[in-house]
């Protein structure tokens, strides 16, 4: 029990420290509003990429329509905060929950029939579904503002709120993975037939995993709407789903921490390459090819970086090397 508390403590401390670091940098004026915007969008992308990683990396189902779920969440939150007037934080939390539920519901609608498909077929269906959502938004002009977009959404979140939601999402996902439900979902990725043969209701857990994935994507979308204050269907094109996918592949399918690192890295890369937009996708492509050649399962593979476990593992590795060295000498 003591060890458990210590492990949680280390992680909690790390979160607080990283938050303080962020604040200190901001107060000292080292980053301006523009950079702050970049950081916020990076964090939102990470949230949605994590949700995509749940569907592809943990559940093992190819999903290419997460921009669609994000759009559902974004428009739900946007319309909600435009329509009602509650105290700031209550309204924000309600908007995020609603955004998640709306996206989760659309996840169920697509997931229940589509999860019977495997691999490429599921990818194609989810891709089509993402586009369907976009066109629905465009054609519901009276409600959503159509192609010209949804304007004048009240600003409800800033860096702090997005950071807190990001931390909550990451914590939630980690705790979820290490529970019996998370294990059941991972077992489906590993071997669906075997999972079923030891009593995992695979259909239920596929739909459930997909729901959670869509829910988190919706929350990310909600944050996006309330930060950006302006939504267009253009943002949620298929290419955006692909960009999210690149983050996941880059970090390693099945590794949440990998997604976080890759999200940060790619956000800054994109920013640096802002002036050369045409070259950006070429550089992405080259990086992906190199990654596929030299480390085909992404930066972290299926491993997680853990403040508690990783130092232990490194220590073990060192000891092993030392042993081998000693043997070599003798």
């Amino acid at each position: 029990m003591k060890k458990r508390l210590k492990d949680y403590g280390i992680n909690f401390l790390a979160v607080v420290l990283s938050y303080l670091a962020l604040r200190v940098i901001m107060y000292n004026g080292l980053i301006n509003n523009y950079v702050q915007g970049v950081v916020v969008f990076a964090m939102i992308n990470i949230i949605v990429a994590i949700s995509l990683n749940i569907a592809t990396g943990l559940l093992g189902q190819l999903a290419l329509g997460h921009a669609g779920f994000m759009a559902v969440g974004a428009y739900t939150a946007g319309l909600f905060v435009k329509a009602v007037e509650y105290p700031l934080y209550i309204e924000m939390i309600m908007a995020l929950i609603l955004a998640g539920l709306a996206a989760g519901l659309s996840g169920l609608i697509i997931g229940i029939p589509a999860l019977r498909l495997r691999g490429d077929y599921l990818g194609i269906v989810t891709l089509g579904f993402g586009e369907m959502i976009r066109y629905t938004i465009i054609n519901l002009g009276d409600i959503t503002g159509g192609a010209s977009g949804l304007k004048r959404i009240p600003k409800m979140v800033g860096l702090n709120e997005v950071f807190i939601v990001l931390v909550i999402v990451i914590t939630f996902v980690f705790l979820f993975i290490k529970s019996r439900h998370g294990r059941a979902i991972i077992s489906i990725r590993e071997n669906e037939i075997a999972a079923e043969s030891i009593g995992i209701p695979t259909t239920f857990y596929k739909v459930y995993g997909f729901f959670i994935s869509a829910f988190i994507a919706g929350v990310g979308g909600g944050l996006f709407a309330m930060y950006q204050r302006y939504l267009t269907p253009e943002k949620f094109r298929f290419m955006f789903s692909v960009e999210l996918f690149i983050i996941v592949v880059f970090g390693g399918m099945g590794s949440i921490t990998g997604t976080i690192f890759a999200g940060v890295f790619l956000a800054f890369l994109t920013e640096k390459l802002y002036e050369y937009d045409e070259v950006r996708l070429i550089i992405y492509a080259i990086m992906l090819i190199l990654l596929m050649i030299f480390k085909s399962d992404g930066l972290l593979g299926r491993h997680e970086f853990s403040l508690v476990q990783t130092p232990r593992r490194i220590k073990n590795l060192f000891n092993k090397i030392k042993d081998r060295f000693k043997k070599g000498v003798a």
């Binding site: 991972i186 590993e190 071997n191 043969s197």
Partner: peptide
């Protein structure tokens, strides 16, 4: 044909 959860 063995069906383990190979990566766990």
């Amino acid at each position: 044909n063995i069906r383990l959860f190979a990566n766990l």
